[in-house]
Design a protein around this nucleic acid. Sequence first.
DNA 1: CGATTCTTTGAAAACAGTCAATCTGTGTGG
DNA 2: CCACACAGATTGACTGTTTTCAAAGAATCG
Lengths: 193, 193
Amino acid sequence: MYEQFEAYITSQATLTQDELRMIRSLASTRRVRKRHFLLREGEICQHKIFVAKGLLRSYHVREDGSEHIMRFSPENTWTTEHDSLFSQIPSRIHIEALEDSEVVLFTRESLEKIHFAIPEFKAYIDRFLTSTLSQTYERIMMNLSYSSEEKYQDFITTFPDVFNRVPLHMVASYLGVSRETLSRIRHAQAQKE
Amino acid sequence: MYEQFEAYITSQATLTQDELRMIRSLASTRRVRKRHFLLREGEICQHKIFVAKGLLRSYHVREDGSEHIMRFSPENTWTTEHDSLFSQIPSRIHIEALEDSEVVLFTRESLEKIHFAIPEFKAYIDRFLTSTLSQTYERIMMNLSYSSEEKYQDFITTFPDVFNRVPLHMVASYLGVSRETLSRIRHAQAQKE
DNA sequence: CGATTCTTTGAAAACAGTCAATCTGTGTGG
DNA sequence: CCACACAGATTGACTGTTTTCAAAGAATCG
């Protein structure tokens, strides 16, 4: 499963064999079965996670029990709880596998070593952070100004791969509408066509 | 007005006199009067903007004319349109002064030079980016799971300074509710107390 | 003061959430 | 192989919230 990560990272940054070796020596790997957790609310997040295979979700549970999905993480994406990882405070989100998954893990210390030793890697992470921030603003814009129907359409076209792999009630949770409302939106759209 | 920026940056990063001189030589400053724009939709964003004095808003206008405020930028904050600045694509947002303001501007090239020459500055920017990302996720979580009333309360306590300086209809636009709804929320809360 | 901007209010309509029931497909154990 | 449990999706009836439209009160500024 580590090969998947190495293939990905070499496609994103130009790294020497030595550098790749160093990164490999600081990474660990793990299989997570469907419905199992990589992080639970209240725990201190220990790793930045690269998804080599499978699909994860990060979600928050409110006091009333309602779940809100912050993010889906399919293959070749990173995920973590930044606040918890960098400030060592208890996580407020859960990270759960929605499919049997394989992940590559880096501790904060490992990442710091890598960033320090390999500017190319750091530059990639910077690019990645910037584009993540853009996408995040995109989502805020969507939340502010789109109708539920538009949000749903946008999700389908922006994340067709995720859409086909998760139950609809999770799409609803990601969009911030009830599953019944999403169901009715789908019904209304099917009528139109 | 540049002094304000220098005071701020030296409080955030340990810089030598030489480094400060370099930064100063690459910055430019500008006064913007209330209701004037630093960036308009369709233009290519040329600068990263530090607000030394005053208050800016970044907002998006939909085809139907509705305005959605992405961010308020008071003193000692940065703002820009990342996508436009780094990819040289037309901006989809406007950046407007809500008060007479003074800003310090850096072009992308200047920033790159500074990042390259002054690791301390780069480290500060990295910390800043990370914390911005966290806040942004915070806002998404709020959008997904809070009621309008909770969003309003959260805004008041998180940004009391901004709250006291902007008209309520802009708070409504930031929160994603109509100004009438916000007005009614306020009325209901005044009743309670 | 007069004009503009901002805020509030009322009434109707649109929209979304909740609760409860039903339907569908999948997979497991007897 | 069937029966059953289970997770997911849909539907109906009802309730509650939010938007929209129109109008009227404050507040602010030149």
